[in-house]
Simulated scan of single mutants.
Amino acid sequence: MKEFVTGWVNYFKLAEMKKLMTNIDQWLRRRIRMYIWKRWKKVKTRYEMLRKLGVGHNNARKYSCTRKGYCHIANSQILNCTLTDNRLRKVGYTFSLDYYKTVIA
């Protein structure tokens, strides 16, 4: 993914792309959160991982047992607060807007 982001940003760096990069990053973060939620298939795993991320017992139980779709949960407040952008960066995900700011500067 890092190669894709760096190549794409370097190719289009002459254009004004800040708004486009922001939209792409929002979509990409939602897809990453959706993938992570999908990877936690069982209710027990979802509960344990939410507890590890600092969610209280009641909220972790409520969200781990939900029947809402992956895309809906990926855009929910619980995953936006627990799987923050900084945590995703720490794991190793590269976002296009961050790289775009370093290339332009």
Rank of each mutant, 00 (worst) to 15 (best):
L97D: 10
L79Y: 05
V91T: 10
I78L: 01
I32H: 11
F4D: 13
G7P: 11
I32A: 10
K68N: 10
K52H: 09
I24D: 03
T6L: 13
N86A: 12
R51Y: 04
N86I: 09
D25F: 03
R31G: 01
C65S: 13
D98M: 08
T22R: 15
R87C: 04
C81I: 00
K52G: 02
S64G: 03
L53I: 01
K18H: 12
V5Q: 09
R67H: 05
Y63F: 13
L53T: 07
L14D: 14
W27T: 14
Y11E: 04
N58V: 08
N10G: 08
R61F: 03
K62Q: 05
C81K: 13
N23L: 14
R87A: 04
G7V: 11
D25A: 07
W27I: 10
N58S: 09
W8T: 11
C81G: 02
K68F: 09
K18D: 15
F95I: 08
T94S: 14
Q26A: 14
H57G: 00
L79D: 03
T84V: 06
R33W: 09
K44Y: 05
N86M: 09
S76L: 03
Q26R: 15
L50N: 05
V91A: 11
D98K: 09
N86L: 07
L79T: 06
A60Q: 04
N86C: 05
